[in-house]
Design a protein around this nucleic acid. Sequence first.
DNA 1: CCAGTATTTGACCAGTCGGTCAAAGGAAGG
DNA 2: CCTTCCTTTGACCGACTGGTCAAATACTGG
Lengths: 206, 206
Amino acid sequence: MPDGTGKARTRIQRRNRDLILEAALDVFSTHGFRGATLDQIASAAGLSKPNLLYYFASKEAIHADLMSGLLDTWLDPLREMDADGEPIAEILAYVDRKLEMSRLYPRESRLFANEILQGAPRMLDNLQGELKHLVDDKVRVLLRWMDAGQIAKLDPHHLIFSVWALTQHYADFDVQIRAILDDADPFDAAPNFVETLFRKLLRPDS
Amino acid sequence: MPDGTGKARTRIQRRNRDLILEAALDVFSTHGFRGATLDQIASAAGLSKPNLLYYFASKEAIHADLMSGLLDTWLDPLREMDADGEPIAEILAYVDRKLEMSRLYPRESRLFANEILQGAPRMLDNLQGELKHLVDDKVRVLLRWMDAGQIAKLDPHHLIFSVWALTQHYADFDVQIRAILDDADPFDAAPNFVETLFRKLLRPDS
DNA sequence: CCAGTATTTGACCAGTCGGTCAAAGGAAGG
DNA sequence: CCTTCCTTTGACCGACTGGTCAAATACTGG
């Protein structure tokens, strides 16, 4: 039995665990936890179902493994927003990083969206803990920038929500957007649009 | 057998069909189609599973009934945007209606989001047809307003996407938002925030 | 009240679900 | 070659899935 908790040791273990997680990301992100089946994941990974369960204790364990690093990765762009940088540039860079994540990791975005949509049964603690603390911290930074007149005075929480909404929408609603844009790649015009939007939004009134 | 295609006739039929659709909306919107079970729906409706299938031919049929009117309802706020009205007021009124739908019908929003997230397997035709045509129509209106200098020049498609993203986010990511805002009702500050955002975004540059 | 219809349900079915297990295959060192 | 350990799998399990059906129950007009 491979070490479930520790790090995979042999090359074959590492390779198969990666195969499984890659396949599981595909399946979980498009069907949600309940809607996904081990047979789908096994088939997508090119392994047999018992072989899957040789590397992971259960369906839950595969999902948990995927989720464990997800929130951290997802919040990294916000974490990097520097309180000592130039406010507008910092926020725009944050938006840009976040949009880039939607472009490069749409499956991860949908995995996250699925979890939240379904009431975040396996992540609520992390939202109320890790996520809330980071947001509270950055809200204080934003408030300071607003008080200093460096950016427009807005509700800082909803400002952050608007970044999430606008950027993640391109990953989560990809199918809908592409149905409307026909051939054009959404990400051709999206970066310019969201940058313009936040520039106008953040420009101080005075 | 009650008439599946036509309108329910007796009071009891109407009542039970409504009970089922109400319960199904709850279950489908939180678990997606595959993740939902007839037993869950039956239990939530207070009926037995065979009784469910007395009123609807199948699980698919219940879901289809829910989806059939959904896209129309969902697009109504955009449809009402009047090409002959005052541009800024028309767009802001559209945003306001859309946000109000997120507040009043979050389950419908999540049902829709689930369908799109999962690749819109049962709705892709409607997206490429009905939805695309309406959006194309309104894009022309927006372009006319932009050419006339009545609103800022922006990518009209992405302008519409931004309305969807910002308003639906409050319904679809409700759990996450409430985890951050603690006790405060997100919809206290949201209307003001999104109105401010779109006012700033749409104000002509000159 | 009764006949006929509309409604409800317990029992059941075949297929699928997550998961187990013993046995078979493979690689590596001696 | 053999032994040992890691890996893979076919066969199988009980629980649950969507769905069926005949029989029972409620409801209606006459």
